Amino acid sequence: MNRFLHFILLSISIFLGFTFWGAGMAKLFHEHQFFGWIGPVWLIEELEPYGLGFYGKFIALSQICIGYMLVTTRYKLLGSIMMIPMIANILMVTISLDWRGTPYVLAFLLLLNLILLWQYRDFFRPLIDEGKSRFDIKTRRIRTASGHLVWLAGLGLQLFAIQVSYWNWIVACGVVLTGLVLSALSFRADLISVATEEVKIP
């Protein structure tokens, strides 16, 4: 994959991730004071009269987790797969509530998501064949348990920041940034873990 294409795909991942991660955080942050460009931030309040407030919170948490997979670029494949049913759920809500314009925005975001999935097309043939396929799967960067744990710690800080926002908005933003930096360091944790294993091998 050439550098320009890699940059484009990375940019799509970050854009999609920020879009949905920011949307979910804005729904749950105190008084919806979080950065994001897509709404509505008051989805939970809109659904509560129909007894669907808890469902609205579920959507928000899904947006945070799935979006975070993409904005940190560590789990682009898993995040892209999970984003399809999430967008479908949001689309059904917007159609049911007759929100005009939103379905077109979601269609554009779904298109970007499909572009991301296309780079992982070599993974899908074994799924279709329900087993080993004669088609090769391209090698990709090694992931390690330590890297996964570092990334999960960063995600945990995002959820913790929501609670902190009810106490102090500035501190909550600091917790969010700390989590993002920590998750970015998960790639470094992979390299350290791999290097350590190589040293152990006689």
Rank of each mutant, 00 (worst) to 15 (best):
F29Y: 15
H30P: 03
H32E: 09
Q33P: 01
F35N: 09
W37N: 13
W37G: 15
W37M: 13
I38R: 07
G39C: 12
V41D: 11
V41N: 12
L47D: 06
G53P: 07
G53C: 08
Y55M: 06
F58P: 02
I59T: 07
L61H: 11
S62H: 05
I66T: 08
G67R: 12
G67Q: 11
Y68T: 12
Y68H: 11
L70T: 10
V71L: 11
R74K: 13
Y75M: 06
K76Y: 00
L77R: 15
L78G: 08
L78R: 09
G79H: 06
G79W: 09
G79F: 10
M82R: 06
I84C: 07
P85V: 12
T94K: 12
L97G: 09
L97V: 11
F108A: 12
L111C: 09
L112Y: 03
W118L: 06
R125V: 14
L127K: 03
I128S: 05
D129L: 02
G131M: 00
S133M: 03
S133D: 02
R134I: 11
R134V: 11
I137M: 11
I137S: 05
K138S: 10
T139Y: 01
T139E: 10
R141T: 08
I142E: 01
R143Y: 03
R143D: 02
T144E: 00
S146L: 13
G147Q: 01
G147M: 03
L149W: 05
A153L: 14
